[in-house]
Design a protein around this nucleic acid. Structure first.
Lengths: 97, 97
DNA sequence: TATGACTAGTCAGTATTTGGCAAATATACC
DNA sequence: GGTATATTTGCCAAATACTGACTAGTCATA
């Protein structure tokens, strides 16, 4: 539960029967980088999500959501106050909407 | 709703009638730094929260929660998928507890 | 206008992240 | 086994972001 984005795009890539070597160049990176991204060892650039979604014929918004969820998970993992902090944030965000 | 930690510690400091020049040295920083922290322009080091709580006679856990909430807010502000991502994270976190 | 509290700006030093390559490993096929 | 392709790992230099420290500034009050 800590690399949902990477796992998802790997799943999508395999479903499309694409190899790293086919996808990576389209994102202007090498296969090693993309491999790391899929395993959650490197960050994927948010700005590239739309392009990636297109390549993988996936839902852009879903990928963006997973990407953001991973960022959040990173922050709160190992944090005892995670739960309460999330509640605080949810409350705050509702006021902005 | 974006600098709850800073606002809180300023409030606490004023309630204790302390000046920046009194608090900052105890945290091994200068007043300019602490001022920026209170205004949300700089990060406060998580590891120093217990000490800060002591100085301000405040609840350590509350400060930690606000600190974390601010980190999260930073990430999700301006993110259209913030709401959904938060839900995803909340779901994930429950599985770890 | 003098003093004290706070803030804004700058900048070098430090830390972290990234991109790219080369080598290692894994998998499949013959 | 041997070869070919796919993926992963490790490393390092370059780029980027962050921090601490200092300076000069504003603001309020006496």
């Amino acid at each position: 539960m800590k690399n949902q984005f990477g796992e998802k795009i790997r799943e999508l890539r395999e479903k499309q029967q694409l190899f790293l070597r086919q996808v990576a160049p389209a994102l202007e990176m090498d296969t090693a980088q993309l491999s790391k991204i899929e395993k959650g060892l490197r960050q994927f650039k948010k700005a590239q999500i739309p392009l990636l979604a297109e390549i993988l014929k996936a839902d852009k918004v879903e990928l963006e959501t997973l990407w953001l969820a991973d960022q959040l998970m990173q922050l709160i993992k190992d944090e005892p106050t995670a739960d309460e902090a999330l509640r605080t944030v949810s409350k705050s965000i509702k006021k902005l909407m």
